[in-house]
Write a protein that binds this DNA or RNA. Sequence first.
DNA 1: ACGACGCCTGGTGAAATTCC
DNA 2: GGAATTTCACCAGGCGTCGT
Length: 462
Amino acid sequence: MGSRLPPYPEYRESGLAWLPRVPSHWDVRRNGRLFAQRVETGREELPILEVSLRTGVRVRSFGEGDRKQVMADRSKYKRAAAGDVAYNMMRLWQGAVGVAPEDGLVSPAYVVAAPYDGVDPRYFTYLFRTADYMREVESFSRGIVADRNRLYWGQFKQMPSPYPPLEEQRRIADYLDAHGRLTNRLIRNRRRMLAVLKERRQGIVQDAVARGLQPSEPMQRTGLPWLAEVPTRWNRTHVGSHVRVVNGFPFDSTLFRVGEGLPLVRIRDIFRMQTVVSFAGDPVPEAAIDTGDVLVGMDGDFNVAVWQGGPAMLNQRVCCLRPDARFDRAYLALVMALALKWVNEQTFSTTVKHLSSTTIRRLRFPAPAVEEQEAIVAAVERATSAIAATEKRLRREIGLVEEYRERLIADSVTGALDVRTADIAAPLAYGAEDDLALDDEPDGAEDDVGEDLDAALAEAEE
DNA sequence: ACGACGCCTGGTGAAATTCC
DNA sequence: GGAATTTCACCAGGCGTCGT
């Protein structure tokens, strides 16, 4: 699957502290010799461009659901011509820079740098967004606090940058662009697969909870909107008759600590199985939980999980479900997740959705015998273990691909690797040692992840 | 040139209100 | 009249605008 890119044959001292050596035939120039500042106003008919930390320069959309901040006065907006480098002077140290895709207007808080001949702006935006260069930017920026740092043209033009020959700038940018397209496709596919896996997991739970373990037994309609029918012999019961809903406690936030005192479970911690903050005051026995307890987040998505993080205290708006002998806890968690998914869809709120313990208690659940509940849980775990393993692998792959891309960009723009001979048609997705499958999917078939998914599931089941 | 501040969203500690 | 539930108010992140 190809081999790792080689270094350049010869290097020389660069005189730069953050980049001690560059390929021998590269130059080092101050940005002022590479770019000219462009200050043109009064082209109010042009589209508005904005710089995002993640995606570079793009045309701002005013579609529904987007931010509605409007600029009262476009007359101070500066023109950026297609191919100009634009950066947000308050955010360059965080990587807010990109190449204007078309003629447009940028905020007065931006600097527009028009490349001279011999400069490929794409190479330089890759360079400007590397971690080392951003640290340099930080040290050239001025401001009273880090968050107010600004990098004006005056400082920017004095910053030295490596300057490969134009052909090589293009070559590097082409290579990184191609690699970016591949990387994006790999990541997008994996995210889609993760979404499909989540759906499939819910389907498995739904089936197991609805049908039990004996197919073809008589079914009855439940009347529950989130669960159409269950076996006739199952009983149903109100959750409140068998489950105590224990609310979290509104702990005094001035006694929150990190790494000292009692672990405190907040909504965001439910799936993480570990806490971020602790409580340094007196324990509240009512709010104490331990591994195996069923937790429900009462705000937002109404998440449900069986806690695995050991002894802890529940903060307000997280509750714990304490069933009597009628319910197995893991089964309760499975069914509760199904029910609350429906409840969540029925809840309307302009901001955060809220759930009350009364709503939980009023739910009606199918309640097979506890032995059957345990068997259902075991079956769900068996049926989803492959999914869980695949999800773990996909998340790891996404992390590796992102990490590799960042390193590849840094190594390419600083001349640590020589991309002159690299195959642009087939850039390395990851590393030679641990290459991910490049024939992931042909272009144009990206919407269909079915085969990939089946392959992933088959692989996970081996 | 540069400090101060706006606006939107998703969260979240804590007060206000309602319920039983 | 305390517990349960809802609402308030503020925060951080993201992306700037405004006033001097």
